[in-house]
Design a protein around this nucleic acid. Structure first.
Lengths: 344, 344
DNA sequence: GCTTGCGCCTAAATCGATTTAGCATTTCCC
DNA sequence: GGGAAATGCTAAATCGATTTAGGCGCAAGC
């Protein structure tokens, strides 16, 4: 392991160390020493020093120097938590990439990459505050702590937030309340009279909204409040354990609205283990955030945002903000879609 | 949309346009005009010009200037295809992030991000060849075209390849042949005598290796060659369609080895639809690349790499290559693990 | 009238790597 | 022996943004 010197090793450091010029070092690093006729002995000395001093090139400097000055390059990022449903992120990336390719011309290029943070610890992400990493970002899958941080800080570059409402940024999200209302409607259509809502311990703004809207939709329809099943985490295992425990306490449960599909997958598992037929005995509704919800057993009926439209809106907004054609933040609501499959 | 001017708009462009200095423009962009006492009228003129000319900051230049010279910053990337099983990528990222955090000190920082390319079109990834984007990368989920490209090009920075053998790079992969052999063993233990192997149309090196090793293991055991079921893509739907067709042609099929879990998921679906009990009538083996394989119906028995170890080896190698402690590429094999669940 | 202070702005250095033009030597050849 | 060519290297400019030190002009104060 390289020793921790005070100052980073640059091309100049190496040059001074050997008594040659930075040009010579750079030449060797780029493997151009043949065409530039450096003496083999010098090349070897430089190589050695590069190794011994633990040189790490500065990519920012290289880019600055190397970039084609005819081309404007913009860096876009998708910031999401490790704990997020990944397939949505990859779908977002793919759609952003397409949108961005469509806007690329000879004189304008974009790069898109995914950066992840631990849910609730967005604030610790290095370089987030400094405007020297991204020209624009999409932030998704934040927890309330992250939202609080974002509300308190105005990042010095273009930002679009997915799935929550923050006054200082442009946001795109599912029409508030609609997901929960639709879920209630689906379960009532199945004649569920003792429905429950399955939630993770840590709720995002979106999942919390679904749960509360579900409860008030039931109330508005004159039904009793749903039982609240709280799972330890987001995984199917957590969902299964929580539902199994609930079925023991409330054997009459006849409907479950799971605020994420992974929890719904666990619920299906627990119901099967307990011998309850889905949807005959217990109807189950998820939210369409799992890639393979139609291959669950039974296939999962979902309410949830129309991701195509959500991503399209996000990209449009992001470009407006980046181009400074939009200065005041705005909110865009996308109504959830309903996909009926077998589970409800 | 901003017009496509010849030269990119820089701070200097704006300054010259207005007859002020670049310092003034920069001051306004950083919102430091109050403390630096720029006249409000000037601030407004600059803001206007910034908007009109469509200025996009150059993040490379900002980083170069802004970085703390006491800290050496390394950029790491995970390069993977859009079509890859994402949960593996996120797991890799998480483990890389941890490994990297452990190696971060006051004087040494790392950033890790995911960049994606279309399977088979790695070569089109912008900036891949130029050493000005990453200090080191992990490349995973490539198709043969990508491998050919990589074999022909030696990227000018640290590279570790996951899941295939390329002579010019360090590689980490499942012990060749072992996955297929273990799958054959599992199916023979289930007394499957007419097994089939389910493959996607486009095989990666790893999936191809699994299929051929499976065939030769059967042969070595004196069994006939397995039928080859070819699915259109990697999705469960493709797998289900291919398996349904196969069952019509070969009703006696009693075992399936699917070279990816998503295909296995489709197979389970098709078998259920055809009324074949799993594992009693048909045993199914997957490869452990799906996050929720133990929540499939029935839970999927898998052979596949021990990802923890794979990622650990990759990270170790990547740092060795970056620090120039390793110059000659090497290959590391990780024996596959076997997870017995209900499907075989 | 001369200093002091303030308001407003600029020149120039800097970050790290790369490349171009070109300067000394040495070698070659007639 | 003299010019030409080859060899081996360096100085300095450059990429774009930021910041520090400081300049100029005008008003206030003594």
């Amino acid at each position: 392991m390289a020793r921790a010197e005070k100052r980073p090793v640059t091309v100049r450091t190496i040059a001074e160390h050997l008594g040659v010029s930075p040009a010579a070092v750079s030449t060797v690093l780029a493997n151009r020493h043949e065409e530039r006729r450096l003496a083999p002995a010098t090349v070897e000395r430089i190589r050695q020093a590069v190794r011994e001093l633990g040189y790490v090139p500065n990519v920012a400097a290289r880019r600055l120097r190397a970039h084609d000055p005819e081309v404007r390059h913009a860096e876009l990022g998708i910031l999401t938590s490790f704990e997020a449903p990944l397939f949505l992120v990859s779908r977002t990336l793919r759609m952003v990439q397409e949108a961005v390719d469509a806007r690329s011309t000879g004189g304008r290029k974009f790069s898109v990459s995914i950066d992840m943070f631990h849910a609730g610890r967005l604030a610790e992400m290095p370089g987030l505050l400094s405007a020297s990493r991204f020209n624009g970002v999409i932030i998704a899958n934040t927890l309330p702590d992250d939202d609080a941080f974002l509300r308190a800080t105005t990042l010095p570059y273009a930002v679009v937030v997915q799935g929550r409402r923050l006054a200082n940024y442009s946001c795109v999200l599912e029409t508030p309340g609609e997901g929960g209302r639709q879920a209630a409607k689906l379960l009532r259509a199945r004649r569920s009279v003792r429905p429950a809502v399955l939630v993770p311990a840590l709720l995002t703004e979106t999942t919390a909204d679904r749960a509360t809207a579900f409860a008030s939709a039931l109330q508005a329809a004159g039904q009793p409040q749903p039982a609240r099943i709280q799972a330890d985490g987001f995984s199917p295992a957590a969902g299964a354990a929580a539902v199994a425990a609930h079925l023991r306490r409330e054997p009459d449960c006849d409907g479950i609205f799971a605020v994420t599909d992974t929890l719904a997958l666990g619920a299906l598992h627990a119901l099967k283990a307990a011998g309850r037929a889905v949807p005959e005995k217990v109807a189950v509704v998820g939210v369409g955030d799992h890639e393979h919800a139609d291959f669950f057993d039974p296939p999962l009926t979902c309410v949830g945002p129309a991701y195509e439209r959500v991503v399209a809106e996000i990209v449009t907004l992001l470009f407006e903000v980046m181009n400074r054609r939009r200065v005041r933040p705005t909110e865009v609501f996308v109504p959830p879609s309903v996909v009926r499959r077998a589970s409800a």
